[in-house]
């Protein structure tokens, strides 16, 4: 964990009535910055917040947006729940998978992309939806996703 993140986490810890409330924000911060949470990160956070390591692991392994394994620079999450799949969301994941040549849970060799199917993203009114890192894309179709992936490959990304 670099000093900059560490300082941010210490700052976070002081924001809440109790230090340990900063656990989730701290884990999310590391996830966002580094794309995954390492064992060292877990131990460091436990140390900063003076809480047991097991409790930090318990939280880190509970929430789906946190990853203990390295994921791609662009983590493409496709909603596969009822509404999205009724509106053909599942073909999206097959398409992306084919386009990138990876299966769910895998990372492209260049480390750029990973794919995951996720439960509801709260976009049922604009289904189907995908989430790339923290950016929501709604009313998706194959054409749109093609364009997005291409622009990501070229490094032109707004998210």
């Amino acid at each position: 964990m670099d000093d900059k993140i560490k300082k941010l986490i210490i700052k976070l810890a002081h924001r809440f009535p109790r230090k340990e409330s900063a656990l989730l924000p701290a884990l999310s911060l590391i996830q966002k910055r580094n794309g995954c949470i390492t064992e060292d990160d877990l131990m460091e956070i436990a140390n900063i917040m003076n809480i047991p390591q097991a409790r930090v692991f318990s939280a880190a392994s509970f929430y789906t947006m946190l990853s203990l394994k390295k994921i791609g620079k662009y983590h493409i999450q496709v909603c596969t729940n009822v509404v999205c799949s009724l509106l053909d969301g599942e073909s999206l994941i097959d398409y992306v998978s084919g386009k990138l040549g990876i299966q769910e849970g895998e990372v492209t060799p260049d480390g750029l992309f990973s794919i995951a199917s996720v439960e509801c993203l709260g976009s049922c009114g604009h289904a189907p939806a995908i989430l790339i890192n923290m950016a929501h894309y709604e009313n998706m179709d194959l054409k749109k996703i093609d364009k997005i992936i291409d622009s990501l490959k070229k490094g032109e990304w707004r998210g």
């Binding site: 877990l42 047991p52 390591q53 097991a54 409790r55 392994s61 509970f62």
Partner: peptide, 20 residues
Amino acid sequence: NEVLDMGFRSSRMTVVCDTN
């Protein structure tokens, strides 16, 4: 001693020691 906690969730939930 605060070594054990419950890791993961749903049917994958299991007791972990420290950071698993």
